[in-house]
Structure formats: C-alpha cells, structure tokens
Amino acid sequence: METTVLSSSPRLFPLYRAAVLRRPHGSGLPGRSLRLDGVTIDRVHLAEYGRVCGFRLRDELPATYVHVLAFPMALSLMTAADFPFPVLGLVHVENTIEVLRPLTSSDTFSLSVQAEALRPHPRGMQLDLVATASIDDSPVWRGRSTYLRRGPGNSDKSGKSGLSAVGPPPASAVWRVPRRTGNDYAAVSGDRNPIHTSRLMARAFGFRSTIAHGMWTKARCLAQLEGRLPETFSVSVAFKTPMLLPATVEFSGPSSGPSSGASSGPSSGASSGPSSGPSSGASSGASSGASSRAADGFAVHDRRTGKPHLAGAIVELDRADPDEGAR
C-alpha cells in the first residue's frame, strides 16, 4: 500500500466543505495510507478534552484521545474523490481501541491512517478506518472505527457484532448529560457533524434533538473506570440507539473491574455520547502480537426507557513478546 507522508495534520474546514460538495466516484477503498510523523501533545487541548469527557488531569493519555488526533487524517481519506461513499450518511457503528503501551503527554509518535475491509452487511456495506500510533516503528496504540453505509443488504449475518445489551443491567452510576455536550465535544474533537450541534439539522435527519457523539460516550465510560483499567488493554464498543440531548442515562460496569480488578469508578458526571445512530455492534479487539484474557462488559442505557446507547467490553492484554513484534 502506498503511503503519503503529511507535513502537518489536515485542516478540518476544507475537509468539511469537501464532505458537502465532493461527489465520490471510487469503486473500492483508497489504496494508500496517510502518515504524520513527529506528533506531540498540546497539554491545553488535552486538559480541555479531559474536562469535556470526565477524565482527571494526568500525564497519561486517555485511550480515546489519540482517536481525536487521528480524526483529521481519517476525514481526509473519507472526503477524497476516490473514496467510495459520501461522508454524509456514513454511520459510525463500532469502535475498538488497543492500548499496547501507555502514551503520555511528553511522548512524540507517528500516526498513520488507512481504510480497509470493505464488506457487505445485512443493512448495506461496512468498512473500517484504522489508525495506528507508533514509536520507533513499533505500534503502541491502534484504533479501528467501523462505518456503515446503508443500502441494499446482504443476507449473511456474519457482520453482526458479538457485543449486545439485553435489558438494562444494574446501574453503577447515573449521568445527567446536558444539551451543550454535543457542542463541547465537537469543539475538542473536531467532529462537527451538525446532528450533534444543531437542533434544526438533527430534526432534518429525523432526530427530535441533537444527539451525543458515540466517541464521547465511549470516552465517558473509560473516565468512569479511570484508575482501574489495566496498563495494556483492548476496549470495544457497539453504538446502539442515539442518545438524544439532554439525557439522563445509567452506566453499568463490571463489579470487580475489567480483567484486572477495575471497577466502575466514581458515580457522577455528565456525559454525552459519541455519534452513532442505529447500529450493529463493535468487534472485540484483537491484540497486536499481545495475548488477551477474558472480557468484562459495560453498557450505557437510557434511565427511563432502558434503551441501550452503547455496549462494550474491556480485555486486558499481555505485552507482546519483543521477538515477535506487533502485527
């Protein structure tokens, strides 16, 4: 696969303009990846991201933070003329993140993004955007976002996720998610899809009000478990029904903590969910050369109706054998 090396992170405004105006004509996924070297952390931005998502102020990066750094590169691929689908209308249905080595605010690393695995789905077509952070050519973080393009379906059910939420489990925390959450997360993430920020546009897409970003909801779940997560782990989520803002939701987490004794953490905090829309679930993360243990589940449900907004699982990873390397 050809690699295009960028000199800086793509600017978002031209990409959003391209998302509206450009008509894709590709028949397959772009046969190239984008790479950005010398990525450093803006501590002011990191602190604001932590405030919006509920993380404590600390040197170690939240697992979801690198996804925000990779977002402009992913959007650049998705708005290119040879991308097969228009960005508007793609639904983010799943996300898996692997933390192969904790990253800190003082680290410098490379980011690469590529599209892969275009495949039929019962409700249309799916594809993955895969982002990888590397230090000295060794992967230390990987994120896989699965998008659904609705259309004629395929009867094969193999695209269905193993992550499900069958009835609301006992809640370990209640979150009151204010209406501003969509705008707050858009400001720190760069994801300014108007269904999250404009009630008028949300209604045009069939929602009664703005909806939370799916990746905000995932981040808020990890903030709820902060301080109890394994050092290296995989966390997979399926975005279920949209979270209409404002909302009151319940978080349900493992009673003894993800794979290594992590528990559900302090029970407070507003949170608003990353974008979604109706979806199928997330695949569980496979480790890059690291072995894994049993998974522990967590979920977010509407407090009044019990409808699921997110279902997830965390798996502790063993560090890869240094002679084996990361796949």
Rank of each mutant, 00 (worst) to 15 (best):
R11C: 12
L12F: 05
L12G: 05
F13I: 13
R17L: 13
L29Q: 03
R32P: 02
L36D: 01
G38H: 04
I41A: 01
V44M: 11
V44H: 14
V52A: 01
V52N: 01
V52K: 00
V52G: 00
G54E: 00
F55H: 05
D59V: 12
A63Q: 00
V66E: 02
L69K: 00
A81D: 14
D82L: 08
D82Q: 14
H92C: 04
E98T: 10
R101H: 05
L103N: 00
S105D: 15
S106A: 09
T108F: 04
F109E: 00
S110G: 10
S110R: 09
A117K: 07
M125Q: 13
Q126F: 08
D128C: 06
S134P: 10
S134G: 11
W141K: 02
R144C: 11
R149T: 07
P152D: 14
G153L: 10
S161A: 12
V166Y: 08
P170C: 02
A171T: 15
V174D: 11
W175S: 07
P178E: 03
T181E: 05
T181R: 01
R192I: 10
R192K: 14
R203D: 13
F205S: 12
R208G: 15
R208L: 12
A212I: 11
T217H: 08
K218L: 13
A223P: 07
L225E: 04
G227Q: 03
V235F: 10
V237E: 06
M243G: 02
E250W: 06
F251S: 01
S255Q: 13
S259P: 08
A262E: 10
A262R: 15
P266F: 05
P266A: 08
S268Q: 04
G269E: 06
S280T: 13
G285Y: 04
A290D: 05
A290H: 06
A295C: 02
L310V: 11
A313L: 04
V315K: 08
E316F: 03
